[in-house]
């Protein structure tokens, strides 16, 4: 009789444990957001732990730097277009924009470069004097891909698709960095080369100083 009671107690205790585990497990796991929600999205300007201690530029700083450089560059390029090309509409293609920094990751550089290019193209100052075209390889690839054998029938195909050499220029650039403890200076050097005679008609540096906080 005593043994019977003992076994019953053991079984009831085990059942109690199992029930508790099942209940708490369900409750514990349900407290997490389900996968696929936007729970991990934060406003762009938020400083996150992952960025603060990464030792690299914060993404917000990269965005701000791209805005500053693009604004300054668009004003300078617009002035140059009026001064050196007599106000004619000039055609610019992006040439080499090279990352020569010691520590900026390629992904960061491409992010910065593409935002500057995009902001430059969106500038009202710039659009009044300059139009941007893809480089020759991309133009031809696009034409062949989209129009194929009917390319010749397209409006503007053929001679019209090649920019006028006298008002055609390449925008090239390099990005360098100076690394010193606590401070990192990035500078972007942009040059505009006239396609007709290879003359550099515009050259200017734009600086971005980054003071590192934390480690």
């Amino acid at each position: 009789m005593k043994y019977g009671n003992g076994i019953q107690r053991i079984f009831s205790s085990l059942a109690f444990i199992a029930l508790s585990v099942a209940l708490f497990t369900t409750a514990g796991c349900r407290s997490h957001p389900p996968a696929g929600t936007s729970a991990g999205r934060v406003p762009i300007g938020t400083s996150t732990p992952g960025e603060a201690s990464s030792g690299l530029m914060r993404s917000d700083d990269l965005i701000e730097a791209s805005e500053q450089v693009a604004t300054a560059l668009s004003e300078d390029v617009s002035e140059m277009a009026l001064r050196d090309f007599g106000g004619k509409l000039i055609t610019v293609t992006f040439g080499d924009l090279v990352n020569k920094t010691s520590r900026m990751p390629t992904t960061d550089f491409e992010f910065l470069r593409d935002r500057i290019k995009s902001r430059l193209m969106d500038s009202r100052f710039v659009r009044a004097n300059i139009r941007f075209v893809e480089n020759r390889a991309r133009r031809e690839a696009l034409r062949n891909r989209e129009l194929g054998q009917y390319a010749g029938r397209a409006a503007g195909a053929g001679a019209g698709s090649t920019p006028d050499i006298e008002t055609f220029a390449f925008l090239n650039g390099n990005m360098y960095s100076v690394d010193r403890p606590g401070t990192r200076l990035y500078y972007l050097k942009f040059e505009l080369m006239r396609a007709d005679d290879g003359q550099t008609v515009f050259s200017k540096d734009y600086e971005v100083k980054y003071i590192q906080l934390g480690r």
Partner: peptide, 21 residues
């Protein structure tokens, strides 16, 4: 992009940030 001249006629960016631990 305009075809076949390759002229960039419009562009825009949209950015969003996600964090995880």
């Amino acid at each position: 992009v305009a075809i076949p001249k390759g002229q960039l006629v419009w562009s825009d960016h949209f950015a969003l940030k996600r964090i995880a631990r």
